[in-house]
C-alpha cells in the first residue's frame, strides 16, 4: 500500500523542514491510522487554518485507498 509514501510526499512538499517529516502507519485492533510528525514550526502549516490542510490530507488519503485509515497529526515531535 502506497499510502504512507504518498502522505509523506504530500506533507514534505508543503513544509519548511521536509527532513523532519515522519509518517508512521499504525495497525492496531482499533483500526489503522497514520501518525504524521513534523517540525514544530511546521505544525501550523500541516494543520492549516481551521484544520483545512489536515482535512485536505485526509481527503486524499481516503481517496487513494485509505478509506477508514485515520490521519493523526501529532503535536509533539
Amino acid at each position: 500500500m502506497a499510502l504512507k509514501p504518498a502522505l509523506e510526499h504530500l506533507v514534505k512538499g508543503i513544509v519548511d523542514h521536509p527532513d523532519d517529516v515522519r509518517v508512521r502507519l499504525v495497525d492496531s485492533r482499533r483500526g489503522k491510522r497514520m501518525e504524521v510528525r513534523v517540525h514544530p514550526d511546521d505544525l501550523g502549516t500541516v494543520i492549516g487554518r481551521g484544520g483545512r490542510t489536515a482535512k485536505a490530507l485526509r481527503q486524499v488519503v481516503t481517496s487513494i485507498g485509505g478509506r477508514g485509515v485515520r490521519v493523526d497529526i501529532i503535536d509533539a515531535y
Partner: peptide, 22 residues
C-alpha cells in the same frame, strides 16, 4: 484523484498551492 464531486481534486489543488507558497 478526483473523488466525489471533485473533492479530492480540490484537496490536491489546495495542497499544491501550499507547495507553491512554500
Amino acid at each position: 484523484l478526483v473523488g466525489q464531486r471533485g473533492a479530492t481534486l480540490e484537496a490536491i489543488q489546495e495542497l499544491a498551492r501550499l507547495a507553491v507558497f512554500r
